[in-house]
Structures are given as C-alpha cells and as structure tokens.
Design a protein around this nucleic acid. Structure first.
Lengths: 191, 191, 191, 191
DNA sequence: GATGAATGAGAATTCATTCAT
DNA sequence: TATGAATGAATTCTCATTCAT
C-alpha cells in the first residue's frame, strides 16, 4: 500500500496532533496516537519530528500562530469605541464560547506544559509577548502587563472550575485594572 | 512485633509521591518511581492505593492541606501593618523563593492535570477556594477574586518565562487592583 | 495462557541469553530474542533484568562461573607430571576442541564486550584474576601473568584466523615463556 | 561548476565513520550517525556505500592502511639500538598513549566484530599479518609470532582492566619471549 | 495482610533500506 | 547523480495492574 510522496505529510501530522490534544488532552499525545489520527505510519511521525518535544513545539507554535491570526479577530473587538474593559470582556466571551471551550482548554494545556518541558518555554514566552503587544496598542505597558496576567488567571480559573462565563463579572475584574467605572458612566479619572 | 497494619507505610508513600511530583513533575508519578522514592516494595504502593489516580489525589489533597497549614505562614505576612499590595508582594516573594519554587510549580501542574482529570477537579477547586478564603479576610470578596486571578496569572507567567521575581513590579500590579498608591510614604528605591 | 509462578524463570533467561550469544553472537542479544529463546514473555526479561547490561553481566558472570567450575577440569591437566608448557598446551587443546569452538568464541565475545560496556569491566577483570590465580599455583606470578596474556593473545588470534589448533606450535610459544626446551631433553640453558 | 562525481564526499564519509567508531564504538556506526558526523545528507551515505558493512569495511581497511603508515612510526622506535624488549615496550607505551587510546580500543573492537562478521575477517587477518611482518624484520618468525600474541594479550588485558601502562612490567614480559635479561646493568628492583 | 513475580500493552526512538524525484 | 522522504521492523525500557503465595 504505497503512499509515497505526500508533500503535506508534515503539516497533516501537526494538525492531527492538535486535534488529538484538543480531544484527548496533551497527555494522550504519543507518536502512536498521532500517527493513527494523521493516518500515516508510525515511522513517519518520528521522521518528521525526531522527538515528541519537537512535535509539541510545532503544535504549540501553530496554535499560537493561528491565535495570532486571530489577532485580526481580536482587533475586531478591541478597535471598538467602548471602555477597554468592555471590549476585552466581549473578546474573552467570544474566545470562551462554548464551542471553543475545548480549544481554549487545549491552548492552556499546551501553554502550561511549558512548566515541565523547557523546549516549550520559548514558544510560551513568545505567545505571552505577542499578547502583551496587542494589549499594548490599547493601553500603557504597565496596564497591559497586569491585564495579561489577570486574563490568564481568570481564564485558567474558569476552565478549572467549569463555571460559565459571566461577562459582567469578568468586565468588573478587568475594570479594576483599567480603572474604568463598573458600567455606564466612564469617568476615567484615574489616568 | 510485626504490625499487621502499618499506617506509617501509607503516609510514607504519600510523602514520597509529593517529593517525586515536586522534583520530577506529576507526569513522573508512577508506582515504581514512588515505591523507589519511599523505599517500599512495589506491591505496597498498589496495595495501599488501588490506582495511580488514588495516589495522586491523596498526595495533592495533602499538599493542599499542608498549604492550609501554610496559610498560617501566609497570615504572618498578611497580618502586618502595611498596604495590602505590599503584604501580598512580600508573601509572594517568600512563596516563590528558590527553595519553594518546585512546590509552586507543582501546584500549577495540578491545575494543568485537573483540566483533564475529573478526579482532580475538586482538589484544584478546593485549593482555589482556600486562596480566596484567605484573601477574603483582608479585603472585600470582589477584590479578593480579582487578586486571586491576578496572582495566579502572575505566578504562572513568572514560572513559564523563568524570569526572576521582581517585587516592585509585582507590587505595582497588585496595587492596581487594591487601588493603593504605587508606594506612598516610604521612599524606597523601588524604581 | 497463564504460566504464573515459575521460580527458575530468571535462570532460564540467563541460560537462553548464553545460548543466543553462542549461536548468534553477542550482537543478537536483545530482549526480544532472548525472550523468544527462553519462551517467556518479553516483559519478563525486562522485569528480571532492568537493562540489557544487567543481563549481559549475569550471563558473563555465569559463563565465568561455569568456566570456573571447569577449573577443576583445568587441574586435571595442570596437575600432571610434565613440563608446564605441555600441560597448558593440552589444556588449551581440550578447551579449543572443535565442539567447544563456538563456546570459546562466545566467551571471548563477552570478554571483549567489556571494551565498550563499563558494566562488564569488573566481571572481565575478575575472570582475568581468577585465571592468574590458577596459573599462579603452578609457576611464579610474573610467569603466570605473561602466560595469561600470551594465552589470551593466542586464542584470540586462533579464533580470528580460523586456523586449526596446532598443539606443537602452541606448546612452543608457551615454552618460550616458561623457558622449557621445545620437547624431549629439557636443557634449560636459557635462564 | 557542480561536480558530477565528488570523491571527497566518499572520503569524508569514511573519515567520519572512523571518528565515530573511535569515539562511540563500532556498534554506534549507523548511517544516520555517520551522516551527521560527516555533515552530509543521509542519502549520501547509502549512496556511496550500499550497505553498512561496506562502510564498515572501507573504514577499517583505511584504519589498517593508516596503521601501515604508522608502521613508519613504529620503525622509529624499533630501529633504535637497544634490546628488542625495550624497543617494543617504548613503542607500546607510545601506542597506548592516552590520545591514541580510542584508536587502540577500536582496533580490538575490530577483532571482536570480526569474530562474527565474515566480511571483517580478512581485514582483521590483514591487520594481524602486518603486525607480524613488522616484528619479523627484527627477530625470527617464531619469536615474532609469540611476541605478536603476547602483545595482543597484554594490550587487551590493559584495555579491559583499565590499568595504567606500566612500562617496566611490559618490558619484563616481552623479555621473557625475546630471552633478554630482565634489565641488564640497571639494578632495578624488579622482584 | 502484604508482596514479589508476572505480563501484555505501549512508550519513545533508531534504524537500514528503498524509492520518487 | 544525488537526496529527502518514506516506512515497517525492531530497539530498549516503563508501566499499571493482576495474582499466587
């Protein structure tokens, strides 16, 4: 059953890895499982990715890249004419959409995996920086940094507790950092 | 005088499991590794803990329990007479001490693991709640929740990037939530 | 097909390893091959011998032990009332018997394997020492050491070239070290 | 001006193979490892050497050839005006120099490999013969043969035990074969 | 009760070789 | 001619769990 010469083999393996991570968790990412999901022989995965870490890095990089593309989607929310807390809250609500829940969980799994896999650290750090960049376009660097940490914490806790996304609550927490009033009359006296 | 039932054995296994999880990660928790670390026969670990998950849960529950004990240590910092942001910043600095680094990392690994293992969800949730409880003694619930998320995000980002703990930066981020001025009277060389 | 509780399992694995090494060479010693030869499941070999090195050490140790038992056989030759060179030559002829050729080759393979496997070094060194011991019972230490090296060199070269064992030639070489005359009239004017 | 046929490529692969064999052992000789060491694409090694054995033979043949060149180095020692045992002892001391240790070990690995791989037998035999040839220029054939075996045995035992080279001891053993006095005028405390 | 042995599945890798280009 | 890709077999080793004693 010869299936030689498949130029997109490598890409298909990465896609399969992301799919597996999303459906079964990062712990299920093994050469075998990925090979089966990508419908390629086992040796093919190890040929293209000498080690599992290599595959993980490629997957995380792609996830970040896709999310990076989504930055366009982000600006769709962030460019609006509202208090920043509202804009981010809307963005996060869209991000944490029920449909996307599995996806986000997987993204945090890959992200947290860097805790133990040094190979992933640079990618995770790069992702963090790009997040900071985007936020930095809409506020000062200090606020951006705080918002970034707060968002990471909030999403992680949401994922952990399984509580539904509460836009008002999230908005309120963000507003504490942006200094914006809870809702209607944005007085922005904080600077 | 051979004891029929040896409760210490069980405890020793748990302690070894925690040690292993701290040093090598939750992923390294296997019957064999724990048995070796506890210096007990392999069969002993499977005897006392029917499955690996049982052992993991027992270990993490104990970690949270100890952390509860540590809450005493927390209050040592939090009961002081300073702006809350300063008190928390000092607490976190102590918490992220090099020596305790492995412990903190393990706690975030617990988060990671809980994302996929239902058995761990309650443990992670309890841990989160206990954090909220403690903070709630020193501020209103809303601020406590925001601080909790912010702290989780900051620590996670610190662990991921490997950047050193910067007390001034952390203090500044916390102050944004507590609403306290960056550093009122004490003209510390904060930068 | 349960075959639980087989108290001689470990020994059978060692025996199988030796058999495999003799028939197919040390390079063919793999967990799989040995398991098949011993008629045990693959996991059984790795249970009893955590690493291949462990198995090799056990095999080499046993080979030396058996040969050590053969020391009795050695004395059968060495205790005779002849010039030492003759006694050793006869011993080596018996040792290199056609039937034993594969066995000896395997012994040298295991012996030489220590060149690259530090784990085998102590066993190889012990074997060498025991050889020295035996020879030392029949001559002075210096001669014993030289004889030991000469014998190792001769046997190795014989195995390599595949030349038949030539008792007269071997005896002559040994006599150069023992200082004994080539054959009948020992004049020993050589010093 | 791309050369259709690049003989240097082939040579570079052989050199890399020798380097690998010296440093990591003959067992580490694989297409991949050699290709990496030679900094050529994997396909290049299989293109120039149809099978691994071909590469191994080419490499070892070159080693022996170089050793032939080294014979010039040998004569540097052997042509001196001293007892033969001294000359050989000095030669061996230089030969077993730390720097050359890996090379010598590889030569004995060649012996080991030749025990099972017919393709290597001629190479090993040629190496042995060249040794005999050189020695034959300085003594009678019988002594040369004995010296050759003794040297092989001594070096092998030195490599196996890891003991340091002891010139006096080696000289003494050689002298037993050459018939030269242990150390004529210099009253060494040989025991 | 406690445990050493057992085992089958699966882990990550490495590999020699083939082959389409 | 030269080579990157492909692949199936095999490598060592780890593992959770079961079970006879």
């Amino acid at each position: 059953m010869p299936r030689r010469y498949d130029p997109e083999r490598r890409q298909r393996i990465i896609d399969a890895a992301i799919r597996v991570a999303e459906e079964q968790g990062i712990g299920a990412l093994t050469h075998r499982v990925v090979a089966r999901a990508a419908d390629v022989p086992l040796g093919s995965t190890t040929y293209h990715f000498a080690s599992l870490d290599d595959l993980l890095v490629a997957a995380l990089r792609q996830v970040c890249g896709e999310a990076g593309t989504t930055v366009e989607g982000w600006t769709e929310y962030l460019d609006r004419d509202e208090p920043l807390a509202d804009r981010i809250a809307d963005l996060l609500r869209a991000y944490m959409d029920d449909e996307r829940h599995g996806r986000v969980r997987m993204e945090y799994e890959l992200y947290l995996a860097a805790l133990r896999r040094p190979a992933l650290s640079p990618v995770a750090a790069a992702w963090l920086d790009s997040t900071l960049d985007v936020l930095g376009r809409y506020t000062d660097p200090g606020t951006a940094r705080t918002l970034s940490a707060l968002i990471d914490g909030m999403l992680l806790q949401l994922l952990l507790t399984g509580r539904p996304f509460d836009r008002a609550a999230v908005r309120a927490e963000l507003a504490r950092v942006t200094g914006e009033q809870p809702a209607e009359r944005p007085r922005t006296s904080d600077g």
